Simulated assay, not measured.
Amino acid sequence: MALPAKLQAVLDLIRSLPQELKAQVLLEYAKKVPTPPPEVELERVPECQTPFFLRAEVEGGGVRLYFFVPDEAPTVKAFAGLLKEGLEGESPEAVLAVPATFYRGAGLEELLTPLRLRGLEAALLRLQEQVRHAL
Rank of each mutant, 00 (worst) to 15 (best):
P4L: 13
K6D: 03
K6A: 15
L7F: 02
V10S: 02
V10M: 05
L11E: 10
L11V: 13
L13P: 05
R15V: 03
S16F: 01
S16G: 15
S16L: 02
L17C: 03
L17P: 05
E20R: 15
E20W: 08
A23T: 11
Q24S: 08
Q24C: 02
L26I: 05
L27C: 10
E28K: 11
E28H: 07
A30K: 01
K32M: 09
T35G: 05
P36Q: 05
P36D: 07
P38F: 05
E41M: 15
E41A: 14
R44P: 12
R44F: 10
P46Y: 11
E47S: 04
C48W: 08
C48P: 14
Q49W: 06
T50F: 02
T50D: 09
T50S: 15
F53W: 14
L54S: 02
E57C: 07
E57L: 13
V58W: 05
G60K: 00
G61I: 07
Y66C: 07
F68K: 14
P70L: 01
D71R: 15
E72Y: 12
A73G: 08
A73Q: 07
A73L: 04
A73F: 13
P74C: 06
T75E: 08
V76R: 06
A80D: 01
A80Y: 15
G81R: 10
G81P: 01
E85V: 03
E85S: 10
G86A: 03
G89E: 01
S91K: 10
P92Y: 13
P92N: 12
A94K: 15
V95G: 12
L96Y: 15
A97N: 13
P99S: 11
Y103S: 01
G107D: 03
L111S: 02
L112V: 13
E121G: 06
A122L: 03
A122G: 08
A122N: 08
L124P: 09
L124Q: 15
R126S: 08
L127S: 06
L127P: 12
Q128P: 07
E129K: 15
E129G: 14
V131F: 03
R132W: 09
H133D: 12
